[in-house]
Design a protein around this nucleic acid. Structure first.
Length: 594
RNA sequence: GGGGGUGUAGCUCAGUUGGUUAGAGCGAUCGCCUGUCACGCGAUAGGUCGAGGGUUCGAGUCCCUUCACUCCCGCCA
């Protein structure tokens, strides 16, 4: 028998009445009636009410114990009278009448309460994370995370994937995010990089003939944080398969996602078979390559309307002549919305840096007409044409934005989200997954005007790649795909390019010559020259999956020991200065700031 | 790097138009209370109003600078 307990704090029931038991845990809450004291004793599993009165020799000691003191109690399980049963806790039909008591761990005055649903400043939560983690909601989130990871690991194993570890100290890669660097003592002046993802290693695993690999892989990127993006480190379900096409990867991941989300959430899946949306279509219809498909609103291009003679909305017409486009969002049956609704959206858009959102509502007396400040600029025929393009009807409203493609995509995507929320169109009780496919292989850097890889340089380009195609690199699509859920990008993946010649060709388009490729990707390119299987994979973000399942908006709520926005660990004081001996050993010197 | 929000007791917050000694709840300490489950009641302690500067007879409140936390943009193949 355990020295500390016969039962956990969630276990005792009325069937256990009369048993002599011992429990250990934290004092969650005390209710002191002077001569009678109730103690809610909490452990990882639950809460049990314990009771002691003044006749017990331990009464005074227990009465003056702080909340969160760790204690062991021994006593008899007692049935509660009907009117004192607490239905809110599992053990609410009984209580433990304390006989003996022992303090296992004392507790100073708390910097923050543990028993409370109140929100606290992030700073104090992170500094005292060990206290924060005792609190119900986040404690459960972290347990959920553990269960999700076990489940995924089990599913992957069942599907025949093998789990391997890959190096944490590796080499810096020229593409992608900023690296975290680690100085090498044995190689003065040289640095390891922490992996941004095990990208090259997982491909090497395929070249090594292991066929199906996965790993719950730590990834390190030195980029600024967001609510859904931890600074520094995060985890991916990294997976790779040999002798597969895009569809083979999709079917594995779809199965895994459907099983995981059905197992850990009561929310419905909007699609069991995830729709595939091309990158270009997503950018037009949703203004984004991570659309929230719970939102029924779509964006339409109505640029051509502003070339018509019978449209006299001169501001837009002028901009369209000089190369701008017009895109719009239709809201169904909003004719009775107050003027303030429309003006607020317009005002909001201006706050987002756009020139605003023009709008009108379609009305009909004898003829169809547009109501609103700019309605008079559109003829009935022009309105009919808009109705045809956008499939809108009388009673609907249309919000329009005008601008260059990229700024237009940005503002319409934000507007789609904003209007969807304003009109309460987003059902929070569903998960809407989709695949975004057919990403372009290359894009033009807006600042340098150079051609660069738009995503992963190791992706396989689509189609028959003749010389002619290489002359129009921006038209080349890749077997590159993302999986998106409720507007959150869960991962991206690709069928890889396993042909060295083609790889050199693609890198040359992005401005790397053969020797640069040989040098930067020596491990990879060399390996691909010794019989590489066609292969592909993907890497869904574990943190974001758990975030969706836990219904949290911030990734720190599903991360046990997160860093703050400035990539500092307030509990461990990382990063910290190091002493001169350490620097000397590493052949480093610190240049003084300013 | 840029923009927004927040910063008052250990914690969560209030604090009016610039005006007396800066308040409440929780927590802490002390006292009372034998059926609570956010137990109740009474008392006490606890404040560099994030920091620095300025305006003013007078600043928690107005202005400037700065710091911290956070959200967003850039960034994140």
């Amino acid at each position: 028998m355990s020295k500390y307990r016969t039962h956990k704090c969630s276990e005792l029931r009325k069937e256990d009445v009369e048993k002599i038991v011992s429990l250990s845990g934290w004092i969650n809450k005390k209710r002191d009636h002077g001569n009678l004291l109730f103690i809610d004793l909490r452990d990882n599993y639950g809460i049990t009410q314990c009771i002691i009165d003044k006749d017990n020799k331990y009464f005074l000691e227990i009465e003056k114990s702080q909340l969160e003191t760790v204690i062991k109690v021994e006593g008899k399980v007692v049935k509660r009278s009907d009117e004192t049963i607490n239905k809110d806790i599992e053990t609410g039909e009984i209580e433990v009448a304390i006989d003996t008591f022992e303090i296992l761990g004392t507790c100073k005055e708390l910097p923050m309460p543990v028993f409370s649903d109140q929100e606290y400043a992030e700073e104090i939560r992170l500094k005292y994370r060990f206290l924060d983690l005792r609190r119900k909601k986040i404690h459960e989130n972290i347990i959920l995370r553990s269960k999700v990871i076990s489940f995924i690991r089990n599913e992957m194993t069942k599907l025949g994937f093998l789990e391997f570890q890959t190096p944490i100290l590796t080499s810096s890669s020229p593409e992608g995010a900023r690296d975290f660097l680690v100085p090498s003592r044995l190689n003065p002046g040289k640095f390891y990089a922490l992996p941004q993802a095990p990208q090259q290693f997982k491909q090497l695993i395929m070249v090594s003939g292991f066929d199906k690999y996965f790993q719950i892989a730590p990834c390190f990127r030195d980029e600024d944080a967001r609510a859904d993006r931890s600074p520094g480190e995060f985890y991916q379900l990294d997976l790779e398969m040999s002798f597969v096409e895009q569809e083979d990867v999709f079917s594995v991941v779809e199965k895994l996602m459907v099983n995981t989300f059905k197992n850990f959430s009561n929310k419905k899946l909007l699609y069991d078979k995830f729709p595939k949306i091309s990158y270009n279509e997503a950018m037009l219809k949703y203004g984004s390559d991570k659309p929230d498909l719970r939102n029924p609103l779509v964006i339409n291009d109505i640029t051509e309307i502003f070339n018509r003679e019978d449209v006299s909305f001169e501001i837009f017409k002028k901009l369209v002549k000089s190369g701008s486009m017009v895109r719009c969002i239709v809201t169904k049956n909003t004719k009775d919305k107050p003027r303030s609704f429309f003006d607020n959206i317009d005002k909001w858009a201006k706050g987002e840096g756009a020139s605003g959102l023009a709008y009108f509502t379609l009305g009909q007396d004898k003829n169809i007409s547009a109501k609103g400040p700019i309605g008079k600029f559109f003829s009935e025929e022009a309105l009919m044409e808009i109705m045809k393009i956008t499939k809108c009807e009388v009673g609907d409203s249309i919000f329009m934005a005008c601008g260059k493609q990229s700024e237009l995509e940005k503002i319409t995507a934000l507007a789609r989200d904003k209007i969807g929320k304003e009109l309460d169109l987003i059902n929070d009780n569903i998960f809407a997954f989709c695949w975004i496919v057919d990403y372009p292989m290359f894009e033009r850097d807006e600042i340098s005007n150079k051609i660069k890889f738009s995503h992963n340089p190791f992706s396989m380009p689509q189609g028959d790649l003749t010389e002619e195609n290489f002359e129009k690199p921006l038209d080349i699509l890749a077997y590159q795909y993302d999986i998106v859920c409720n507007g959150i990008e869960l991962s991206s993946g690709a069928i890889r390019n396993h042909k060295p010649d083609l790889m050199y060709k693609l890198f040359s388009i992005a401005g790397y010559d053969k020797s640069q490729v040989d040098q930067k990707f020596s491990g990879m390119i060399n390996a691909l020259s010794y019989g590489a299987p066609p292969h592909g994979g993907i890497a869904p973000g574990i943190d974001r999956i758990v975030m969706l399942l836990a219904n949290e908006k911030n990734i720190r709520e599903v991360t046990m020991f997160p860093m703050n926005q400035n990539a500092q660990d307030l509990m461990m004081n990382a990063p910290s200065e190091i002493n001169s001996d350490q620097l000397k050993e590493l052949n480093l010197s610190i240049k003084n700031k300013n």
